[in-house]
Design a protein around this nucleic acid. Structure first.
Lengths: 337, 337
DNA sequence: TTGTAGGCGTTATCAA
DNA sequence: TTGATAACGCCTACAA
């Protein structure tokens, strides 16, 4: 079924059908209705490829997610869902590309085959070849996260450094003198994953500023890793009375290890950090944490991308989110004071 | 950048470039290399829309997932990841459409705008308007799950009825006389979600067959719901000594409620069901459960879809997965015997 | 071994 | 108010 067939049956020309559909030219009410009847009857919809070819845009955006095999964190999942939602509201389709490595056919197709009008690039590393690739291919894109040299690209990011620093200050205010940072996995850190590095920076600086003792550990993004990681801290560093974490997937494991060590939160031990609201509220007791509004982030990223697509001369924009820390009940005064 | 420009710079005709790229016609080594050099230099790749228009296919498949707002279960997430993976291996792109309702613009675009060559439709309900829609639009598709009348469509599904029945028999063999089924949410059941209904059917029949006492409850897909659900069972039905569940997201909550009631698994209480391996192994103690290989399902679904796309006359195919129940350590003899 | 030309389904310009 | 027609970029049958 194509526009010519509709035109034939309605007894008009193809252009009239096109204009009746787009509204870019006046069409008499009578013919408009006749055309609409035929369209309804035959369930016609314009061929997307032909339209894309003619208009030079696909009405599709690419969403580059971390590669399959690694499970998305809940925060990332919320983000993906909110991108889908925002895109749907703008009548944009979303093409998913799971790309981690540099030479990835799926990513190359998206970038250079004009399959999409723009790209949202998740999980950016401090040095990221994909960013360079998108820039040289002149594909509009928005980064979720930022590289080490972020000024010449548009991005949305969470201020992990600032948030973890706040957590440290909060704990120090409560009298804790020995605290630990439970970071993301060693693999991610080694790959130059920004949040891992920036959280560590914020932690180190804040700990130094307050003159307290801080150690940091990497921890896999899963319950079992969280449990063994927390257990190791309890065993090898008995002085530690509080942890801050950006590893939400490890939280249930952290909780389990504390329970097994008969540590009551927050009486014996304090826990805080950065997490999706969902995780914070599922912790027992509810976690004092910076609630990242991943939902909001997705919508903002789509907005920025749409802007960049429609006017390619827009200067780079940066959105550094610093959500407030919700005081719940997982932090308390340092024990023994 | 288009094929004409490449041809011009290489000093050949457009068709020669096209043939050099596709290999469908012999091209002399010298010109082939000259063309390749230009292509490399200019980083050319064929325009996907033009190719799709000419060839009548998009090399893209649609993946219709449950609507945003509801979090995907881990099993669903694994499935999505494996579809992405299988599609990438076949050099297919994946267009994501979060569509639950019947009149959904995103779904309609996918179905009828020729945006994709075929569709994988997740979370099918017993009566599902989307199935009818795809059939009448003659879009090749594979269902994940099946309707009440599944014979005339191709699908891949998990045999929840059979698996839950097996769980019941396993528990009955261990001497349990009062067991409960923790099902998916009441909303899903009300919407006619197949697994919820079929699990209940399998449960009811097996319980009757063994002459034991069974109750079933619906439970939200989250930790908090799992906890309150399990607690209610313990309080109101003290006879119950075991549960079977298909609600993996509720498992941590189930565990928490049991711990708080000082129930030791499997000494005082047995737990079993159907879950992604990931969840089963994270349960304490590890869950005796049917490990659904969502990863495998995705690959199979893509295979079936590719077959259906390439030969539209293929008869409907049905793949009912019945994974084995992995005996771990969350089930034991009924207490007090 | 290579070139020419037509058409895929749309939109938009130019005429009427 | 409407119609004819020329692109958009690619592929491929037909010619040479």
């Amino acid at each position: 079924m194509n526009i010519g067939e509709i035109a034939r049956r309605a007894g008009v020309s193809r252009s009239t059908v096109s204009y009746a559909l787009s509204g870019k030219r006046a069409v008499s009410e009578a013919t408009r209705r006749r055309i609409q009847e035929v369209i309804d009857e035959l369930d016609y919809r314009p061929n997307a490829a032909a339209r894309a070819l003619k208009e030079g845009r696909t009405r599709t955006i690419g969403l580059v997610i971390p590669p399959a095999g690694r499970r998305l964190t809940d925060m990332q999942l919320d983000f993906v869902a909110s991108v889908m939602d925002a895109a749907a509201r703008a009548d944009l389709d979303v093409l998913l590309s799971p790309s981690g490595g540099d030479h990835d056919r799926s990513f190359e197709r998206v970038v250079t085959g004009r399959r999409v009008d723009g790209v949202i690039l998740m999980e950016i590393r401090l040095e990221d070849a994909r960013v360079t690739r998108l820039q040289q291919a002149a594909v509009p894109f928005v980064g979720i996260g930022r590289t080490a040299e972020p000024d010449d690209m548009t991005w949305v990011d969470v201020d992990y450094a600032g948030l973890i620093a706040r957590c440290v200050h909060h704990l120090a205010d409560l009298g804790h003198r020995h605290i630990a940072l439970i970071n993301r996995s060693a693999e991610l850190a080694a790959a130059g994953y920004g949040p891992a590095h920036r959280a560590l920076t914020g932690f180190t600086e804040a700990v130094a500023e307050r003159g307290i003792d801080g150690t940091d550990v990497c921890c896999g993004d899963d319950i079992v890793s969280g449990e063994s990681c927390m257990r190791r801290i309890l065993e090898t560093q008995p002085d530690v009375t509080a942890v801050a974490t950006i590893n939400e997937a490890a939280l249930p494991g952290i909780q389990r290890a504390l329970e097994q060590a008969d540590m009551v939160v927050p009486r014996d031990f304090s826990v805080t950090g950065v997490a999706a609201q969902h995780w914070a509220e599922n912790f027992r007791p509810p976690l004092t944490a910076a609630d990242v509004l991943a939902t909001d982030m997705g919508a903002r990223a789509v907005e920025l991308l749409i802007e960049k697509i429609s006017r390619s001369d827009t200067p780079p924009r940066h959105l550094l989110l610093t959500p407030a820390i919700s005081l719940r009940s997982s932090t308390g005064p340092a024990p023994g004071r």
